[in-house]
Amino acid sequence: MRYREFWQLVDEVLGSAHGRALARDLVLFELQGRTAVQALEDGEEPRDVWHALCDAMEIPDARRWGSAARQAPPRR
Rank of each mutant, 00 (worst) to 15 (best):
I59N: 01
R4F: 14
W65L: 02
W50Q: 07
W65Y: 01
W7P: 10
Q8K: 13
G66L: 01
A56Q: 10
L53R: 02
H18R: 14
R47L: 08
P46Y: 04
M57S: 04
Y3T: 15
R24A: 09
R4M: 14
R63G: 00
V13P: 04
F6V: 15
A56I: 06
R47Q: 11
D48A: 13
Q71V: 08
V49R: 04
F6D: 14
A17T: 13
G33L: 01
D48W: 10
H18P: 06
P73C: 05
R63H: 00
Y3N: 15
L9Q: 11
R76S: 08
L9A: 12
E44V: 08
Q8P: 04
I59T: 05
E58H: 08
F29N: 10
P60G: 00
L9R: 14
L9P: 08
E44M: 10
V49G: 06
R2P: 11
D11P: 11
W50D: 05
A23C: 09
R64T: 02
A69R: 06
V10K: 11
D11A: 15
E58T: 09
G15W: 08
R63C: 02
L22Q: 12
P74F: 09
M57D: 00
Q71Y: 03
E5I: 15
L53D: 05
D48H: 11
A69K: 03
D48M: 11
R64L: 00
V13G: 08
H18L: 14
A68K: 02
R76Q: 07
M1Q: 13
A69M: 01
E44N: 13
Q32E: 13
R63Q: 03
E44D: 11
V10L: 11
A68R: 01
R75D: 03
E58D: 11
H18M: 12
F29Q: 11
V13Q: 08
P73G: 05
D42A: 10
L22M: 12
G15H: 07
E45Y: 10
A17R: 14
D48G: 12
W65N: 03
Q71H: 08
G19H: 09
P73R: 06
S16R: 15
G19F: 08
W50V: 08
G19K: 07
L26Y: 06
D42G: 03
L22I: 10
Q38H: 02
V10I: 15
P60D: 02
G43F: 00
W50G: 07
S16I: 13
E44R: 11
E5A: 15
R70F: 01
A52V: 09
A23Y: 07
H18T: 15
R34E: 05
Q8C: 11
W65T: 03
R47K: 09
L40A: 03
V37I: 07
G43P: 03
L31G: 06
V27G: 04
Q32A: 12
P73N: 06
E5T: 15
